[in-house]
Simulated scan of single mutants.
Amino acid sequence: MKDQQIEINLATTRKEKPDFNNLQFGRTFTDHMFIMDYTEGKGWHDPRIVPYQPITLDPAATIFHYGQTVFEGLKAYLTKDEKVFLFRPTKNFERLNRSSARLCMPELDEELALNALKELIRVDRDWIPNLEGTSLYIRPFIISTEVHLGVSAALTYQFIIILSPVGAYYKEGINPVKIAVETEFVRAVQGGTGNAKTAGNYAGALKAQEVSSKSGYSQVLWLDGKEKKYVEEVGSMNVFFKINGEIITPELNGSILEGVTRDSIIQLLQHWGLPIVERKISMEEVYQAGLDGKLEEAFGTGTAAVISPIGEFFWKNEKLIINNGETGPLAKKLYDALTGIQNGTLPDSLGWVEEV
């Protein structure tokens, strides 16, 4: 599979590009997409770049009925000297393969997948926005396509990559968001699919998000699915707390997604010599730290938003205000460091950036 040549079929007409000053996240897509097919016994085959277009599937395709799908999210950045950078892309394809293995889906050759992504970015390079805070969002995903009504792993799949120029994920940007602690619904449980990046995890989270949004909260803080006691994630992001000088993030336990940004934050903190601990942390501990004046900062981390400071928690009908509802110095420092490395304005001392 590694040696397969990527066929390129360029669009004869091009779309009108959006105003890069007014980008909505995930609403606009580039001129082309990458597709590759999988057939049991043949493996992955026919890698190609084609004009962006709808996918035609049979109504009995297994994706619609049994949910075999995994995806990733990463970004490409245009530097001031017109270079195109990817941030730790191999980590995303490694995680895509881990997600595929959990859902009994065929794994990809990671080198081929990365080469395909780079070729697609070269084709649609002029779609990468060049304004501060903007980037080209990349969505690789795999779907099962076999025409079959029966609960078993499919025999055919498609791997697709689409691209979208984006601005900030949250309209608040780097400003703090308000978070409701979810006590009724759960995101995932150990032994389930919480550590895989699969669509069902997000569909199951929508009801809690809908309820919290109606109350004026941007996202929910997820607690563990067994005791509803320990903090796991915030919205679709990993979460960090700074308590009495120590930075704490929930340890990976099988139901928490292993975020690339999470790992990068941990490495940055260690590189700076700051105390970072991965362990179980209860909402009771977080709340008490807030009452005692020891909860200095809280923030979510993920590819889309990078760093999203948390200014308020709502839990058991009580509001807990963090750092006077303002962005903390650590969250700001981490955001500036990560985005600086990503867009080439800061040196990449940890070797994370890969040029297209």
Rank of each mutant, 00 (worst) to 15 (best):
G259K: 03
G245K: 10
W272V: 00
G173H: 03
K214N: 06
F185G: 00
I256A: 00
E258F: 02
G192C: 01
G200L: 08
G245D: 14
L223N: 04
Q219P: 06
K228A: 01
N244D: 15
M283R: 06
N253R: 07
L274G: 02
L221T: 07
T198P: 09
P250W: 09
E182R: 12
S213D: 06
I265F: 12
N244K: 14
G259Y: 12
G216N: 03
S212M: 14
Q270Y: 05
G200F: 14
D263M: 10
L274I: 11
G235M: 05
T183C: 04
V211Y: 12
W272F: 10
L206V: 14
T198N: 13
V260R: 00
S215Q: 15
S212I: 09
T198V: 15
N238H: 07
K197C: 04
L221F: 10
L252P: 00
V189E: 05
L257G: 00
K226N: 13
A199M: 14
E285D: 14
S215Y: 10
L269S: 05
N253S: 13
T193F: 15
E278I: 04
P165W: 01
R279D: 03
V231Q: 11
L257I: 13
G235N: 06
Y170R: 01
I266W: 11
Y217Q: 02
E285I: 12
Y230D: 03
G216H: 08
Y169G: 01
G225V: 11
G192A: 08
V186I: 15
V231D: 07
M237F: 11
G204Y: 09
E284Y: 12
A196L: 13
Q209C: 02
L223Q: 07
G200A: 08
Q209F: 10
D263P: 03
Q219S: 08
E251P: 00
E227F: 06
K178Y: 13
L257K: 04
G216F: 13
I248K: 06
K242N: 08
R262C: 02
E210V: 07
N244H: 12
E258H: 09
W222L: 08
F241S: 00
E184L: 12
V189Y: 13
V231R: 08
Q190F: 05
M237T: 12
E246Q: 15
T183L: 07
P275R: 05
G200K: 06
V277T: 15
F240I: 03
G192R: 02
D263N: 14
L221V: 11
Y170T: 01
D224C: 04
E284A: 03
L268R: 07
I256W: 10
K226T: 10
K226R: 12
L257V: 08
A203Y: 08
A196H: 12
V186M: 13
Y202N: 02
I266S: 00
A188M: 11
V234S: 10
K228N: 08
V239M: 05
S264Y: 11
L257P: 06
G225R: 07
S282N: 03
I266C: 00
V239D: 04
L269T: 09
M283N: 04
K207Y: 13
E184S: 09
F240G: 01
G273V: 02
A208V: 09
V211R: 14
A168P: 03
V166M: 04
K229E: 15
S236M: 12
F185T: 06
Q270T: 03
